[in-house]
Simulated scan of single mutants.
Amino acid sequence: MNKRWHLMLGVFVLLAGFSSAHASTTALGLTLGQTTLNQFTKTWPSAQHEGRSKWSEGDIYSIPTNELVLEGIKNNAVIFNKAGKVTAVVIDIDKSKFDQMHQMLAQKYSVQKHNVSVVGDKYARYENDNDVIELDAPHLSTEMTLTYSEKMFQEAYLKKSAEQLDKH
């Protein structure tokens, strides 16, 4: 091939990468809506079964924090749907990492809402196709919560939480 053909091919490959849809939403190496329970237990054999989710009706697991690469993780929950696929990943992490996490997430996902005050609560919401990523750092807490979830899971969570409030 001549140089002109190589240059055209290189430009095509570069443009194809930019025009493609967003990449799948992945947290802790788990892809929302794709990673199965079987794949998860093979990757994380020491994960602990924590019960069933009343929102997704699937299993909940936690990964020992000492096995996770990300520093400052206090707790985590990997939530599956009825079909046995990851529908949400919830991570409690040291609040001092908010700015670093926000910057990283804002580069990867579309920022939908952003409230970062010097004093008070800090919150950011990102979206990626049918997924929602939320970073929530309450003012008086030393931890923040990073949640990756499919929109279907979040809607079920909000609906069932509202129903529980109505009962009380």
Rank of each mutant, 00 (worst) to 15 (best):
A124E: 02
V119Y: 09
G33K: 01
I73M: 01
L7H: 06
D94I: 08
Q100H: 06
K113W: 02
R4A: 13
K167E: 01
L105Q: 06
F98L: 09
Y126V: 07
K113H: 13
S53C: 05
M104Y: 08
T41E: 08
T26N: 05
T145A: 11
G120K: 12
E134C: 13
T147D: 03
E71M: 08
I73H: 00
P45N: 06
M144G: 09
K95Y: 07
V90L: 12
K74M: 11
A16C: 15
E155F: 12
S20V: 14
H139D: 13
S96G: 11
P138F: 02
S56A: 14
E71G: 08
Y157V: 04
A156V: 04
Q107P: 04
I60W: 02
W5S: 11
V78F: 03
V78W: 05
T36E: 10
L15A: 14
V86Q: 04
Q164E: 12
K97F: 14
Y61T: 01
T43M: 13
N81Q: 07
H168T: 11
A47K: 03
L105D: 01
G10S: 15
D136R: 12
F80H: 00
F40Y: 08
E134R: 15
L135D: 05
I93A: 01
M144V: 07
K3A: 01
N66T: 09
Q34C: 09
G72I: 01
G33M: 04
L14F: 15
V78M: 03
D94V: 10
T147I: 12
P64L: 08
G72L: 01
V119P: 00
T65W: 06
N2C: 06
P64Q: 02
I79E: 01
G29I: 07
L68R: 03
T145C: 06
I93M: 01
G17Y: 09
K85N: 11
A21T: 15
S161M: 14
D94Q: 12
E67P: 05
K82Q: 08
D59K: 07
F12E: 14
D92G: 14
K160R: 09
S46W: 03
A23P: 03
F40C: 05
K160W: 08
V132Y: 03
A21L: 10
G17A: 11
A83C: 11
Q154F: 03
Q103G: 12
A106L: 01
G51C: 09
S19P: 06
W44R: 00
M152N: 04
R4D: 05
P64T: 05
L9Q: 12
W55N: 07
